[in-house]
Design a binder for these strands. Sequence first.
DNA 1: TTGGTAAGCGGAATCCAGTCCGCTTACAAT
DNA 2: ATTGTAAGCGGACTGGATTCCGCTTACCAA
Lengths: 207, 207
Amino acid sequence: MEELPLAELPTAQTERADAASNRQRILTAATALFDERGAENVSMQDVAKAACVGMGTMYRRFGDRVGLTQALLSERHRVFQDEMVRGLPPLGPGAPARERLHAFGRGYLAILDDHAPTLAAAGGHPLLAGPEEAYRMHLGILLRESGAELDVDYAIVTLMAVFDSRIHLHLRRERGWSLERIQDGWCALVDGWLGVPGTPPPAAADR
Amino acid sequence: MEELPLAELPTAQTERADAASNRQRILTAATALFDERGAENVSMQDVAKAACVGMGTMYRRFGDRVGLTQALLSERHRVFQDEMVRGLPPLGPGAPARERLHAFGRGYLAILDDHAPTLAAAGGHPLLAGPEEAYRMHLGILLRESGAELDVDYAIVTLMAVFDSRIHLHLRRERGWSLERIQDGWCALVDGWLGVPGTPPPAAADR
DNA sequence: TTGGTAAGCGGAATCCAGTCCGCTTACAAT
DNA sequence: ATTGTAAGCGGACTGGATTCCGCTTACCAA
């Protein structure tokens, strides 16, 4: 349960029956509370109470608030990661690296757009540690495949840094930007890293 | 005291003498504690106690932990902003936009490198709100001056997103990257946004 | 069926940021 | 000097995340 590249499968067979039911109860309660009142108005206590479970149980299961939040989103990410690896182009294999990168960013940002408030309430960061490893790897492969001459690992950092939920929320709410603007911006960022090949001006060409 | 572009000057004449002395006492105590034990092991209580001041006083003066931290760093930023606006090239006026951007990033990252632990302990983000406005503005001017065709405001977001203290700390500690590598990466990011003019490969040329 | 035992459980305790509010005092105007 | 008052003060209080720990129980092996 440590180094799985895709979304974790913590529900191994070796989990006791009561533990499994508690896990499910917690996830259900959390989902309900989060979209009823908004994640920022729900405490871990609230979730525990609604799930009829002690605090110890929640924390044993999910580690911390970030962990719980990630578990809530893991199904969506599992599906996305599957499309990314096995799905149709341009997201899946078959399209040129640049297009796959664009499709990836648009897709990730669409998911983020739905969950940014929940993620921001938890305080996690997509770049740091764990379950986003699959995305870093995917970006690395595509960047290398593109043949551009660059520090791939640093490029990945910049590409994922803007997936920070607080930033996203800030752009969408305080500044009122559209999701499309952010997605276009991300594609332009990719084009900046890849360099402009035959295509005319990259930013302009894409919008 | 609201819309000053440079570092704020809160010590206006209109501050009561006892208030001024408390402010100083708090700043001194905080500095001492932070570099004695590391900011992550110092609570606001600790600072208040060491400064012989109540919690109310600290929060009246600095708003929150982020505010206190920023106040601690403000002198350094004031100097840097001054060099940026009035100093010598390449940081100051006179050099081409690309070079000024490179110099800006290297300088900012050097400061960040010294203070990332303190900033991370406070939890603030350089992109969001307030005192970093001056930097956003500076980047905007230079990006526009460069004549590149791009969404300037989005480019600013990406350029400042990687100034996140948690990211910086992660790269330096968990990944063991050198400051130079991060600085070079940032310059390459700038070059990506500006496009490569006559210069050979930008990343390679810069290292 | 019966234990033994590791996994799981609950919820009180801890730690900390940030808020509240009634008391105190610097200082400016008289 | 006196005094009115807004600015300033301290520290108890609140709310929330996370940890601790002694009790309980599912379930495997005998």
